[in-house]
Write a protein that binds this DNA or RNA. Sequence first.
DNA 1: GCACCTCGAGTTCA
DNA 2: CTCGAGGTGC
Length: 643
Amino acid sequence: MLDSPEISDAEYDEPMRELIAIEEAHPELITPDSPTQRVGAPPAEGFLPVRHRTKMMSLGDAFSFDELSAFLDRVERGLPNEKIDYVCELKIDGTATALTYENGLLVTGATRGDGKVGEDITLNIKTIRSIPLKLRLDKSPGFLEVRGEAYISKKQFEEINKERSKSGETLFANPRNAAAGSLRQLDPGITARRELDSIIYGLGFTSGEGFKTHWDVLQFLKKAGFKVSKFIRHVETRDEIFNFCEKWQEERDSLPYEIDGIVVKVNSLRQQESLGATSKAPRWAIAYKFPPEQKTTKVLDIVVNVGRTGALTPVAVLEPVKVAGSTVSRATLHNEDEMKRKDIRIGDWVVVQKAGDVIPEVVIPISSRRTGEEKIYKIPNRCPVCGAEAVRPPGEAVKRCTNISCPAQRFEHILHWASRGAMDIDGLGPAVVDELLKNKAIEDIADLYFLSKEELLNKIGHFQEKSAENLYNAINNSKNRPFSRVLFGLGIRHVGSHISDVLAQHFPSIEELENTSFDGLTAINEIGPAVTESVIKFFEQERNLKVVDKLKRAGINLREMIETGAPKKLGGLTFVLTGTLSRFAREEAGEKIKALGGRVSSSVSKKTDYVVAGENPGSKFDKAKSLGVKIIEEEEFVRLIGG
DNA sequence: GCACCTCGAGTTCA
DNA sequence: CTCGAGGTGC
């Protein structure tokens, strides 16, 4: 077997500490290629475009062994009567990068971009420890470009998401997105903390090196100091190729990083050249893509869940089965119509898969395995928790429990109040809320603020002094959350986080919101009749008024804070973002605008002050033009927000 | 009244 | 991520 050893991370770690010490003592000795220069560079302004010397092509896909065979047929036809051997590599699910070295020193790291022009992410690339800043060659070529995959290990990915979850940031869907996102950080310090890794698998434009095979190239890359995969295989027959694919399809879970397929390349560089390329992809390589992992399992039961709004949602209880890395035992069926459309019955054998990598989904029932014993499930007309009538309004898709004091709704409502987007009360999770309700310590959200430490300790079975103290403090600290979060936490129907922001902008205090009229609400952009009605209804309910009153007495912040400092730069201005911004994600830009007192709206109207147009702006751009709304480009926007 | 875009609400697992 | 539904503009 021709497996090749991988360079271990430890080899890069050891000399670091020593070096830092030396350089701190003698700053004049710091060289541009010093590993200490990997981090600490100032945040970049944005990313400059880099033109690739030779196009970074993508690979053709094969989604089955048939398609893979067809590819091999084409290769053989293209090289009649020649002996052909191949190299099989794991296709790591990361992000493609091109690294250029001049006279042995790393000068540029770039993303693939559209293949012709990528972005200069050199500072971020330098934080990847397995990428040498200097080649380990006696005599380096004047110009060397290598290509590879920058990725994040499964373990590190979970680590990152755990932290993001703590700080309330949106989670990365998969390691690939995490890697891509981390490489697009303006502050290399953040990239460094993400601990990316890299595997190099080929050469780009390079001066004066005469290789015969791809295998030789890989050996050279290893010698030059790059991390090259140890799982690469040099093969000669089709069977070996298929075996390699099959083996890794089964064993992909055992790898420290995610792979989404196998790359098969013609080994001889002369043969590669002779096969050539289409405008999109080389004819001498292909990516065999693993099918999304699907498993079959049995629907043991279908149960209903009662949500915060009283919605009855059917959930399939499944015979536990391992799919794409985790064990699946439940899957939502969304609603009655969806259940009927897919015709899923209790006792059915079904195909399950992960939608988007995390959330299990029932794809389809296997009707051929039916015995006739399967039962069609109907959502009950009574709430399974409180027994009240459950009604599905005409034209709507969900059945709802009509009892506003239904224990299930109350429970979910309190959890919602404590949730990250609302009051963010750490330590107030399902188990604690359950005990507090059961032991009659609270009835509603406002009661939380009248609990003493002792009560918390007494009423929550598993609590010790420390946890009681922590929760007590967490509850107290939530009193001065911004008004918009309080509004969101109230759980008014149709009032989510965004509409809460909008309402808080227009009504500086809860009294003003309470006393407004139907027209006063609908006049506001983004507030239509449905939202208006539900807000007005909320304040008509005696129960709700009592809770609001108690919240007031508890000292909850029920007015928009008026900033006493310097007037905010963007006070009262409304922005609409369109197109792709290069410096930050849209969400980030939105955060910045809001932080400076501005508003972000989703659609352009006469009220819009600025439309910020990024790359490929959408229809909002045209709308802004026709309405005569001021359109600014990213440059000017950055100047406007002063950074 | 319709198309399009957003937002809201519910959900899973480790 | 998913679906459903609200808001806006034609």
